[in-house]
Design a protein around this nucleic acid. Structure first.
Lengths: 343, 343
DNA sequence: AGTTAGCACTCGCTTGGTGAGAGTGCTAAC
DNA sequence: GTTAGCACTCTCACCAAGCGAGTGCTAACT
């Protein structure tokens, strides 16, 4: 496929870039003038016919200009696209924007999604680190009132989960001590996958009456472990779907797809590469057959954990968006690693 | 307006209920048969003409059936609607659904929004309690690693906010003690409105070098106070907008409106009554001129604090939805009051 | 006075036909 | 391999005719 003549490559690039910019089919005359009339429109028409033959272009109907096909976009992304680098000031702006947000990991991802949605005019998806091998790094009991407390769990995946628990008995120092002892002996350092409601129940039984009052707290820990290993998806900018003409037709099915959650999760899970660009039917799900997706993984402590990216029309400004998403993912990885980088 | 004859009321109710169910204009013949042919269609046509005269009905065009006008819906909601009560089992289902969700207040509201969106096929909006008069009830420092800690702040509005803070110095018992002393002396019991970055800065200055290392923690407290008094809006089921024919026309402006946030916030703030039903142009914002909104406030500790409700087309099943929303609000109020009900 | 049957009428929706415009494909010449 | 010229194709916007549903009105009835 790479044996395209230089002029054909040039024509293809012009068509794709113009089409990305305007959304209108591109005619031979327009290309001709864009090339400074180096060749005539008829010549370009001949080349265009060849490109259609090769499957890189399509014509909506006989007498319309040409439009990039899925394959055309793929060729562009792989061979033609100028790899544009993010400006330093834009980098700084994103970084500061995210850093200023001192919050929990999930909130950070949510925020990053908002920024991305804003930046790209697409639906942004961010997934929290879901690592079934994550170990419990720390558990804390935070008293809130006589009968309620918050339990905070930090996992080696960098994720932090908390839950408010109500106890029938008053929560005092003794109870806290018993709680910490149990945590130290049975939870800290264990894999979150090993902790579930069953384990908790046998544990409670073995500890006997004395710690029966611990039961709600321990159940909460099981819930938190469950939450740690569950990918949480953050969707932002769903309304951007309506900004794109070409998606409005299946806006409904697309919205529905996004809200179903599981398929989206599967899709993210299926990505092998650091950066994943899927155009049209290259996507795992047919609901996305008219969409493109760009996702990048981020790493927490040297380990790939979650992803962030966008879903938009196939008519995307790949050259601009790919570097932005890459960069955003790297910043997220750095920030999420902060609670883990010592000890 | 209440001096409508019984038959006219009946006709109005039939038209509205049929229209809510089918979305089609209702003709005189259909009404006639619905009334068991008690009177002829011509009679009904006469009555319908009067109802149009009164502004309670509209005809899309001369030869179509009738459709309820905004005023018609209002009359229906105020006078005609059978006040339907929620079934016990449905009540239980909602309650258990929400209770099972042991989390933080904001998560609870998010969850409640999801349930409501599901239940009503509309966009659900829930606002967290925003109470500028809220006092700081409790502040806790939760160590996470050598250099990071989480700060948890509980306010009398029932809201719980937390933030992860990174410190240059190692976080040890001494620092924690200094932190708690400062909190006890300067923060606990104070109104969140009184704490801002300015106050923190003068406080840090007055404390001198010794506690300079406290600065990031205290700044975090200011941020948390800010967060406590800021209404947080949770939107759920945005895609449901596309489920309703009559909204798809201004789906775009509606989506945009929802995502702008501030106007929505203003709108919720403007509600005086416990339950607020606004139909079409009764809404504060013209973006909602073709929509209806149903919102109910919930109370945390005897104090109205936030709201939950829906935004949908004017063609809503008011009789079914109003009791559901009322009930949901009451459950939320009860659950959120749990961390406050003692001491 | 309120109710009814009958009928002409109005209006929106669909279908089919027409004309303009844009861009192509092809052919023949360079 | 490139170019000019021209007939051709297809979409889109516009208009007219036919239909069907439901009305408004009139005149008669209780």
């Amino acid at each position: 496929m790479a044996e395209l003549s230089g002029r054909k490559q040039q024509i293809l690039a012009i068509i794709i870039e113009r089409f990305i910019a305007t959304g209108e089919p591109v005619g031979s005359k327009a290309i001709c003038s864009e090339m400074g009339n180096a060749v005539s429109s008829a010549t370009i028409r001949n080349d265009m016919a060849d490109l259609v033959e090769l499957g890189l272009l399509e014509q909506p109907h006989t007498s319309a200009g040409r439009v990039p096909s899925q394959l055309g976009y793929r060729y562009y992304v792989d061979n033609l696209m100028a790899t544009y680098e993010l400006g330093i000031d834009e980098q700084e702006r994103i970084k500061i924007w995210l850093q200023s947000f001192s919050g929990e990991p999930d909130r950070l991802l949510e925020k990053a999604g908002s920024i991305l949605a804003e930046l790209t005019d697409c639906v942004a998806v961010s997934s929290s680190p879901a690592d079934a091998d994550a170990k419990i790094k720390r558990i804390e009991l935070v008293p809130l009132s006589e009968h309620t407390a918050m339990i905070v769990l930090l996992a080696t995946s960098g994720i932090l989960k908390s839950s408010v628990v109500r106890s029938e008995t008053q929560i005092n120092v003794d109870i806290a001590e018993v709680f910490y002892n149990i945590c130290q002996n049975y939870f800290i350092g264990k894999s979150v996958s090993d902790i579930n409601v069953m384990v908790i129940q046998t544990l409670v039984a073995s500890l006997g009456d004395r710690v029966f009052i611990m039961s709600p707290f321990l159940c909460a820990i099981a819930d938190l472990c469950e939450a740690v290993k569950t990918t949480e998806l953050h969707l932002k900018g769903q309304s951007n779907i309506l900004n794109h003409e070409e998606l409005s037709e299946d806006a409904f099915s697309l919205m529905d797809f996004l809200h179903r959650g599981t398929p989206l999760e599967n899709m993210l899970g299926s990505h092998k590469k650091q950066l994943n660009v899927a155009i049209g039917t290259e996507n795992l799900y047919r609901e996305l057959k008219n969409s493109s997706t760009i996702f990048s993984k981020y790493s927490v402590g040297d380990k790939d954990s979650g992803s962030i990216g966008i879903i938009g029309p196939t008519r995307l400004d790949y050259a601009r968006l790919i570097p932005s998403i890459k960069y955003l993912a790297s910043v997220i990885g750095n920030l999420l690693s902060e609670t883990l980088d010592e000890e």
